[in-house]
Computed example of a mutant assay.
Amino acid sequence: MGHFTIDFRDFLHNMDCIWVTENSYLLNHNDHVLRIYSNTQHHKINGSEILSFALKREYFNLDNPYIAISTGKKSRKRKLKMSSQEEEEKKCHKSLTERLITVATKTETLLRDINVRNMNYNVKTDSVKTCKGCSSIFKNLCFRQAFNIAQDTVTIPCDGSIHLDSSHVTDRIVSYNANHPRTVCIGGEYYLVPQKCTFLMSDASRLDPLLNLAHSKGGFDIIVIDSPWENKSAKRGRKYPWLSLGDIGKLPLQKLAKNSCIIMVWITNNPTIRRFVTNDLFKSNEIQYITEWHWLKITNTGRPVVDFASPHKKPYEILIIGSYRKVPQIEIVPKVFVSTPCSIHSHKPPLDDLLMQMNLDSPQCLEMFARNLKPQWTSWGNEVLELQNLKYFDNIEC
């Protein structure tokens, strides 16, 4: 096969994934972001302009695999006889690893043969990250114009400058119904808002607004859960607030899902968490297990980010899929999606094109424990706006 050069942005003009092999796809995370936030209306107190944004390129500068740090000492743990469940898990892991190695090899060959290069764009040097000059009086005025006192909701206007305080968008449903992205000033900093999105910024003890929204919609068709799982690293490093398995098990999924709702749960490679999801979370919520998808993490040259044989980390993450009460009419098969991971902690790749392949008719979609917003989705989490802050983005020239 001859070598030729393409640009991701040209190749993926209408979609953000390339078919690699059967039910396996190469995703371009940042190109997807650029498509969402090209032609963004940026409103300031003294005027507005049309800008385009992508995540900072430095977040995807991964040319070499991660280096595993060894202590030089081998563990001498006593080998115990594995249970039948552990034996089955080991067998499944071996089969999965073989498949992922095949996908990784084909992906590396694909990237080499077509010589895919990173997007080339010019970054504008002017900063639009923070807002200067908006007062508390002006914020309260904007809030009164956007606030629906009867429903305790906020509707972000399609046009015009709007400046809010963080308290204005906390513990209440906030919606934006325009067909174009825009910026909003919250607490003196600018945030990106994609088209037709809804969000609730709250902790798990204040879910009533989300439950009321779900009731008004007749429930959600797709629910993606990216739980902050408890683990030793999270406890020791305090990298993020985590929830116990018991707390996650209390999520009111049955009040959020409509019958045959597709439930998708991100998990770590910890067998205890897998068992909790399939044996406890799913069964207690009448969710039937369907299949699993796997995110294979690669470098920009197509190599897995860590060796498959690494005893500490794996180059993939798992998305367990089930359905609430009824099996959906569509067929959901195992898939592998491949991408260079964003260096922002736990920032998952976009699944939009893969979900579109399900051919659901205008599905109502919810992401739980979200840290960013998605077009035409409802997002909930106590950090739901975190990765919408313009400090994570480059203002670019398309």
Rank of each mutant, 00 (worst) to 15 (best):
N259Y: 01
L245D: 05
R206I: 07
D221I: 05
D203S: 10
I225T: 13
R236D: 15
I273W: 01
G249I: 02
I225C: 14
T291L: 03
V193P: 09
G246K: 12
L253M: 02
S284I: 11
S233N: 14
L243E: 09
S227E: 10
S202A: 14
K258M: 10
P241S: 06
R206W: 05
P209R: 04
L200E: 08
N212S: 10
L207I: 12
W293P: 05
E230L: 15
S205I: 06
P209V: 07
L213Y: 08
W229H: 10
F282P: 00
L256D: 12
L281S: 00
L256A: 11
R275A: 09
E286H: 13
S284Q: 14
D247Q: 14
T272Y: 03
L253K: 05
T291C: 06
Y289Q: 07
D226F: 15
I273G: 00
L296W: 00
A204H: 06
Y240I: 09
Y191F: 15
P209I: 06
S216Q: 09
T291V: 03
I248L: 14
D221C: 05
K232W: 15
S227G: 13
L243Y: 06
L296R: 00
K258I: 07
L210S: 03
K258E: 07
S260R: 12
G218Y: 00
R275G: 03
C197M: 12
S233K: 13
W242Q: 08
F220Q: 08
R206M: 09
W295H: 06
A257S: 11
H294V: 12
R206H: 13
S216K: 10
K258H: 06
I223Q: 11
K232F: 15
D221Q: 04
Y191A: 11
S202V: 04
G219V: 04
V193H: 06
N285S: 10
I248Y: 05
L211C: 03
L256V: 12
W293F: 08
Y289P: 01
P241M: 03
D247F: 06
A257N: 03
R206T: 09
P194K: 06
M264E: 03
D203F: 08
T272R: 09
N231C: 15
P271E: 04
V277R: 02
L211H: 01
K196S: 13
Y191Q: 11
V265E: 00
I267T: 04
P252D: 08
H294L: 08
N279M: 11
N212D: 04
T198G: 06
M201E: 15
C197H: 08
D226S: 15
K235N: 14
I263M: 07
I225A: 12
H294E: 11
E230T: 13
I267A: 00
L192T: 07
L192C: 08
T278W: 04
R275N: 07
H215E: 02
D280N: 12
M264I: 09
K255H: 12
Q288Y: 11
L251W: 03
S260G: 11
